[in-house]
Design a protein around this nucleic acid. Sequence first.
DNA 1: TATGAATGAGATTTCATTCAT
DNA 2: GATGAATGAAATCTCATTCAT
Lengths: 213, 213, 213, 213
Amino acid sequence: MTSADQSTPPQPPARRARRADAERNRAAIIEAAGVVFAEQGCAVDVREIARRSGVGMGTLYRHFPTKDDLLATVMEREFTSWLTAAHEAAAATEDPWEALTGFFEQTLDNQAHNRALVETYTATGAPARECARHRDAFIDELRIRCVDAGLLRDGVTTADLVLLSTSLSQAVQAADDSRPGQWRRLLRISLDGLSSRNTEPLPESAPHAGAAT
Amino acid sequence: MTSADQSTPPQPPARRARRADAERNRAAIIEAAGVVFAEQGCAVDVREIARRSGVGMGTLYRHFPTKDDLLATVMEREFTSWLTAAHEAAAATEDPWEALTGFFEQTLDNQAHNRALVETYTATGAPARECARHRDAFIDELRIRCVDAGLLRDGVTTADLVLLSTSLSQAVQAADDSRPGQWRRLLRISLDGLSSRNTEPLPESAPHAGAAT
Amino acid sequence: MTSADQSTPPQPPARRARRADAERNRAAIIEAAGVVFAEQGCAVDVREIARRSGVGMGTLYRHFPTKDDLLATVMEREFTSWLTAAHEAAAATEDPWEALTGFFEQTLDNQAHNRALVETYTATGAPARECARHRDAFIDELRIRCVDAGLLRDGVTTADLVLLSTSLSQAVQAADDSRPGQWRRLLRISLDGLSSRNTEPLPESAPHAGAAT
Amino acid sequence: MTSADQSTPPQPPARRARRADAERNRAAIIEAAGVVFAEQGCAVDVREIARRSGVGMGTLYRHFPTKDDLLATVMEREFTSWLTAAHEAAAATEDPWEALTGFFEQTLDNQAHNRALVETYTATGAPARECARHRDAFIDELRIRCVDAGLLRDGVTTADLVLLSTSLSQAVQAADDSRPGQWRRLLRISLDGLSSRNTEPLPESAPHAGAAT
DNA sequence: TATGAATGAGATTTCATTCAT
DNA sequence: GATGAATGAAATCTCATTCAT
């Protein structure tokens, strides 16, 4: 800051340096926003995020033109990293049913303490269309594996499983403070209801909006 | 006050007169607030409610000294009327399992399109302690009836059923726009998981905060 | 209210009765307002006064078209009754100096616990011109008695005495909670400064606005 | 920070830059608030202050999170600068009695046209405990100087002098519009009553709340 | 480019006064 | 004439976003 400033030429300041700095800022913002959104939900004051990121408001808004953009970015990242981990875990699990179970556990573990995640999950069903598609595709895989192994109840759709994960996420959110771990019981109950031991047909759901098996 | 009232309908108006109007306003406010809260959640502008009630801000605040008071009143009313209806339905249903099923259906039907109701349900588990107690007591009855009839899976607690209802409520909220009625499938799955056909024990939940049953 | 109502002809309802009722209401309002203003100052909610009067807002506003009218009326009454009492006391006191002293004591005793009175006293120097004139005339009498008896310091004007009473009133208001009775010391000090033992001349005050002696 | 500053005026700006502007705004707000509070008392609309400062509401509230904070800051500043000046004047005055007199004059000169200052002075005896302590300590010094010189009436306490200053402040407030400068006469009277020429003992004040001296 | 101060529309709440019954 | 519910213009305070430095 003192003697160094005087010696380094001010004009060609290695654009990479800027980039790196900017990137670091961006990362810091996302990181901080992730924590803050998780703790306090989507409605937090943007300044809280700036403060925890260690950057100014201007910087924050340079990277994310809108609070919603920031939120979307953060949610998408968390969503994606969760999906990636889920993919890996599923790939490493031989037993189809265990893979399905593991997916749910991972999901809920992940969302138990993330307020914003659940809020957005609820609002739109997913942070973004793209993410939702990935998730659906993945869940579909898990489903098919179970179906092929004859483990899944007849007629259970991907949409059912998606809805179940949404549903349980929120239960976890709501209850984990007062009764930590209780959601595992609920998960078990639901999964048992999904098993092929249950032979009675499920009710038809009205074939309304843009649906798919 | 009893027999006298029936014989003398002369002029009981006096101070009742204005009361009636006020009562109508109060009702209008609650009505409008119910609609608005349901549509847009707890965070709506109070003025929107005043506008839709057809009353001024002052009137609204005369009846409900705080936005939260209004919200609480509305939620409590909806909660209570739901519980009452549920009671009646359960009393009229002989079969314990059908009673349980009916309770869940009624609950979800009721909450499918009420954003504020789900928001408060999530936040506190219920509009108010008192309401929650009633609900828990009622669910407990339903549970016991099923247990006595040997229909309920071993080890299922009232807390489990409460959590399930919370969980499903939110799923309904999230999904009913795009897939109306799909929740019935999820409900079926969950209930099947609750039946005594499932004999494997449920995982213990950490006996943390103020638990019961 | 019961049998009596039926026997008395409803048309010519003895206008006196109304009058009497209205008068009673008016008195109740003034009474309650006096208490409330004294306790909480001029800025109280009008409804508090209506409540304590036992009358409705409409009645209150029928008698006093404005909050300020009510305040003025109340202040004037208290001011007047204080002046009347002061007159009587002064008339009953032979010694001029004692009369002056007694006047101040009475004044301060009276205002020690009346917030609104001091507030208005401060604001305008008096509740109303008329009242102020009476007060000034009376204080002038007291002054002249002392002057004639050679007891009052040379050059002390009525305005000086008025200002002194204002000044002390507020001191009483401010301090009487924490140090009840301390004002008597201050009064003594001031009065000693007023005695003819003090021979040095007082500074001239700028002969500004509409002044008199 | 001392000698270095004088030699190197290169670029100490950096983060000071914006600070300076903010500081100017803060000063403008305090300045404007001082004027407005003085003119109209504590109850003014905050927006009036914002308007006169030339800043938006947000800026005002960034600097002072509450109207009361702003008021307290302003009052404290005025109180403190007054005390400082009083200290200096007293230190520069040899004669104890003249020092005491000068203190009162300065005080009243200062408060003659400041409504808010008198209002808070009345309400709490001072803008804040801390300030009051300083004032009391200072007045105590003045008192002791007079006592040591045998100039002060026997038994006069610091509390008496404090109350006197409060009392006169308000008198000034009330009367200075119509009779500017009249307070000097009242001050003279009171001070004469405080001189050791008066030998009669002062009445005891009830030894109530937290008293001293 | 980064900073964080500034902005100002809007949210909640109060209260003097009016008006339907 | 009495009642007290209704009114709505303020007043305080918040926060997403912009902008001067």
